[in-house]
Design a protein around this nucleic acid. Structure first.
Lengths: 207, 207
DNA sequence: GCGGTAGCAATACGACTGTACGATAACGAG
DNA sequence: CTCGTTATCGTACAGTCGTATTGCTACCGC
């Protein structure tokens, strides 16, 4: 048998280069040759690992989404290990969606940038929809948890509440990306929104 | 003097063609030749009206943003003429940001698609930031109105509340664009969020 | 009606695109 | 060591990109 390479590692290396370029220069700045240069390899090698541009787009998108969701799960496990209230865990994990540091900023821009490209292209849209469903399922479960633990009023519609919390998170991410993380405290705002659901109305502070 | 053409109308015609293409095929689908074909004119004519691709991008972006904001203002004037409660006016005007029909869908995709391109490019980012500021200012004023009219508790931070309402709207727009307008009622959800601010906590329904 | 300017189209051009295709080098199995 | 396979590179190719340039045409002011 011939020489072997770590396919997964190579694909990831290429996808990361693609993501950096997309984040730094937008859609117009990415091409096979640019990606190859950024990754420090030849154009031919990219072809060896991806059948075409569509495949690269899709893989890079999936990679960004899966890294994001891994970070979310990490916050969840930490929070559960520390027996934090559900609301706190939710806040910490949703804050991973905000572009508050460089890594999260790149991931945000990849998600954002490929979403436009995704809406017309069925296969990319599937990736986006699946990511959205997973996230919504997770937040819905968290709200359900809150109900069982008495942190949430029992008559709330968990799916609707989750949709609202998630929508606010995404919108805050847009605002942070546009005007910088210093303009306002997005996590504070996120906490208030979560508190809107995760607290008895009588003790709940107004926004 | 030679023959005259309506520059504004021509520029708008070109920008609309660009927007349709961007919405229908994503960023990769737009080029001068494609735009010219879609607009039913020659490539040379586009050059006659725009100094380069950047100028076209910027104009198309500004056009989409300004049409959106015109629709928002129209809802505001209608609402004021009918002496509706501030919350109702706010709901009607923010619903204009949701991609609920074809026109609004195109505008949403243009805003979304150019935002990624905007983040690295200073001049496009300026357009996006200005649009964000205007919208935030409008919603903040609406909340202030609510306070003065007694629809909103006097101790709320108008800017923060506006930021939250706006963020939720943007996030809901993403969700609608991704999974279709039939999956859930985004306006209903939007109404609930607005109600979170525009109602006495004691009478406020839980989500 | 006629001169001249602006509207508009057509084409030419170099750069770059994504993909196809060999050539070369490195390594595992025998 | 050697053979065979594959990782990797380099280049070639047809097409498209954005832009520069040229020329025709329709119209306004005189």
């Amino acid at each position: 048998m011939p020489r072997v390479a770590d396919h997964d590692q190579r694909r990831a290396q290429i996808a990361r280069a693609f993501q950096r370029l997309l984040a730094a220069e937008g859609f117009a700045g990415v091409s096979f040759s640019r990606v190859a240069a950024e990754a420090g390899i030849s154009v031919g090698l990219i072809q060896h690992y991806f059948t075409g541009k569509d495949a690269l787009l899709r893989f890079a998108y999936e990679d960004a989404v899966s890294r994001m969701s891994r970070r979310v799960r990490a916050r969840v496990h930490e929070g559960e290990a520390a027996r934090l209230p559900t609301a706190e865990v939710l806040l910490a994990s949703l804050a991973e969606l905000l572009p508050l540091d460089e890594e999260r900023n790149v991931e945000y821009r990849v998600r954002q940038g490929l979403q436009t490209q995704a809406l017309p292209h069925t296969d990319l849209a599937d990736v986006a929809r699946k990511a959205g469903r997973d996230l919504l399922g997770y937040v819905t479960a968290a709200v359900g948890n809150g109900v069982r633990r008495g942190e949430v009023e029992p008559d709330v519609d968990a799916v609707l509440a989750a949709r609202m919390i998630l929508a606010t998170t995404q919108g805050l991410a847009d605002q942070v990306a546009l005007s910088g993380a210093d303009t306002f405290s997005a996590p504070d705002l996120l906490r208030r929104v979560i508190t809107t659901v995760f607290a008895d109305p009588s003790t709940r502070k107004t926004i």
